[in-house]
Design a binder for these strands. Structure first.
Lengths: 225, 225
DNA sequence: CGCCTATTTGAAAACCGTCAAAGTATGTGG
DNA sequence: CCACATACTTTGACGGTTTTCAAATAGGCG
């Protein structure tokens, strides 16, 4: 009964009764992915939702010019493909594993039915969508009012809050999250390193001075040199 | 029974039975606003949702540097304040009437109860949130991959689709919708005018050549001069 | 007519993307 | 254990787009 793992772990399904959980488990398939694996691809017909049991997943889109944009990072209990399934459109982004990932796959019809018939679940879905909408709107505002340096500082600060002071992303991924090029991301992080705010190594960043980071993120531009 | 107007007009409430509609009407208050009036203010406690019966409303935020950003334009049947009410946070933006507006005001508790107990309504809410999330994510991508000229072209094209070829916005509002300054908005629209794509007058823009607009919006940069 | 707001234009500077080239860690196979 | 391949990181120079600051013009309304 390994599949119960997701159902029991995820707050999203916490309120189901035993019978409902059993049904959910019976219609779901468990899959595993390694770092880098593609879970679903932009443009594919959206026939399944994917519930993350463990691990992290990035949702990316590629602009016509080939620039990667990371829209969201999903973690435990997040549901991937929900919006596309509900809107009846092809998957909007490509989802790829950032770490080894365990996932429960549920058929579109089962998921929709579950959301339709279970008020607790639809309530959770509404909450979740509200949070994501806010996040997206906040990012929009950041793009308009912040320089790249501030955006990177905000990102690193938020990631540090969420996953600890060691941040396992490449400069390219940092760039894709703040919507810039790898070169500028490197130049910005290099300045942070100069200022002893972070330490860098291949594929990861360690936060040393979170306070200074939040100063840069929120305050006016600060002269780092 | 004027208040029934909103309830009957809005697809959001179309599936309620008579008794439910009556209840909704009994707990809502009808209000009217003139262009420029503030309907709700960012930071206020979110105690009501506002259902637009007629007219248009802009949702704006001001960056710390005083730059205005128009997040969304709401129209008939849209619900303002929904996300803030559901998340239990203060209003996230300021809503101001773009035209004369009729609105039904509903208490937070009544609205939440309605969404919780009526599966049809929660379904509609989920749909609505999914659409808004997609919109927001698309805008994010635009900011990263498009120049101002393309963003303005996209905006004008979309507005023309939605409200006809006469677009009743000032250059400042155009600027706030695409996240730029009024000066660049003016420079871009002036170039469009040169190229006979639009005509401009104080506070409004008339679209002449929608096709060329969509070329600029989607295609590669085009030399206008 | 006079005032207020919206629009316009110019010039300089900031910020960031692009292109090109080189350096450096990590792992693999011999 | 070394050498090589690969991917990640770094740096410099240049140019294009957009912001900023400043000042002038024009439309609409009482």
């Amino acid at each position: 009964m390994k599949k119960l793992e997701a159902v029991n772990t995820c707050s999203f399904f916490g309120t189901l009764n035993t019978k409902e959980k059993d049904k959910l488990v019976s219609v779901s398939i468990e899959k595993e992915f390694n770092r880098g694996d593609t879970i679903l691809q932009e443009g594919e017909k959206s026939s399944f939702v994917y519930i993350i049991v463990s691990g992290q997943v990035k949702a990316t889109r590629f602009t016509p010019e080939g620039m990667e944009l990371i829209l969201e990072i999903f973690g435990q209990c997040d549901i991937i493909g929900q919006v596309s399934v509900i809107l009846g459109e092809p998957y909007y982004f490509t989802a790829a594993a950032l770490t080894p990932v365990k996932i429960n796959v549920i058929k579109k019809e089962e998921f929709v039915h579950l959301v339709r018939t279970n008020p607790e679940i639809s309530g959770k879905a509404i909450n979740n969508l509200c949070l994501r909408l806010r996040e997206s709107q906040k990012k929009l505002e950041e793009f308009i009012s912040d320089k790249v340096e501030q955006r990177v500082a905000k990102l690193l600060f938020a990631l540090a809050e969420k996953m600890g002071t060691e941040i396992p992303f490449t400069r390219q991924e940092i760039a894709s999250m703040v919507g810039t090029t790898i070169e500028t991301a490197i130049r910005v992080t290099s300045r942070f390193k100069e200022a002893k705010i972070i330490k860098t190594s291949r594929g990861k960043i360690n936060i040393i001075d979170k306070q200074k980071l939040s100063l840069i993120a929120n305050g006016p531009p600060i002269n780092l040199i």
